[in-house]
């Protein structure tokens, strides 16, 4: 915050006027000004009920300026000081979406994706009936989808350079652990491709069959089908019935 000298020049104002000035600044889009004023409320009148509200509003103003790191710090401080407050759900939610907004694209470090998944999960698990639970749940699924994307990216890297062993185990991870994500159809097609490339026909057929069974209309299945027919094979489920039961339970 501002250097020491400037702080003393701040006139000690009653808490209501300070708070209203801050809110007006925020509504007018003067977010950094709003942050400074909200922090003043908290600093000058730490015991007023407005101080608690001001801490939360200061975090929100940071968020509006895309200063995600500061938002997270402010939200954390609110949670530490007022765990019992009825607005604490909003603080958790604000922290989660600040992580979520910084998720890097799949070719780069996914540390932020893990952080946002954990904090989103914290929101919908601790405050199931809060208005933010549903949105947190949706964003949580999107983040998981993103992690699956990262697995796919690495798997494709190995597939393109012909390391089918490595590619197969990564695609399997997507199908096993990320069954609810949007990458599963493509993973099944890749399994078909890779198993065909190394000549394990029954696995290729199983993968294609599951793909056809669960995503009949998708282009991925068309490509898998043409691949198999090209190689004079038709997709049939491996005799193990475990596969279809496991998959139906999910979809």
């Amino acid at each position: 915050c501002s250097s020491n000298k400037e702080e003393d020049t701040y006139v000690e104002a009653p808490v209501e006027t300070l708070y209203n000035q801050a809110t007006d600044a925020m509504l007018a889009g003067e977010y950094s000004q709003a942050v400074r004023l909200f922090d003043e409320v908290d600093r000058q009148h730490p015991y007023s009920v407005w101080a608690t509200k001001a801490q939360l509003m200061s975090a929100y103003s940071h968020y509006l300026q895309d200063q995600f790191d500061d938002t997270i710090i402010a939200a954390d401080r609110f949670i530490q000081l007022h765990p019992g407050n009825r607005d604490v759900a909003y603080a958790y939610y604000l922290k989660a979406i600040s992580f979520y907004a910084q998720i890097a694209d799949i070719e780069r470090d996914q540390a932020l994706t893990d952080l946002s998944m954990k904090s989103l999960e914290e929101v919908y698990r601790r405050f199931p009936e809060s208005p933010y639970a549903r949105d947190a749940r949706v964003k949580y699924d999107l983040t998981r989808d993103h992690l699956a994307g990262k697995e796919m990216e690495v798997a494709r890297f190995y597939m393109r350079s012909g390391h089918y062993g490595a590619a197969l185990s990564r695609f399997r991870v997507v199908v096993e652990k990320f069954q609810t994500t949007s990458h599963v159809p493509e993973a099944l097609l890749r399994l078909t491709e890779c198993y065909l490339a190394i000549g394990i026909k029954n696995e290729a057929q199983t993968a294609a069959a599951v793909l056809g069974h669960n995503f009949p209309g998708s282009r991925w299945y068309e490509e898998a089908y043409s691949l198999l027919t090209g190689a004079k094979l038709e997709p049939r489920a491996d005799e193990g019935s475990w596969m279809s039961r496991a998959f139906n339970s999910v979809f």
Partner: peptide, 19 residues
């Protein structure tokens, strides 16, 4: 003998993320 050349589909599932 079981090795086969397979043309991999170039399309990939779209993902988001801040680039």
């Amino acid at each position: 003998e079981s090795k086969q050349e397979v043309a991999h589909v170039s399309r990939t599932t779209p993902t988001s993320g801040h680039s």
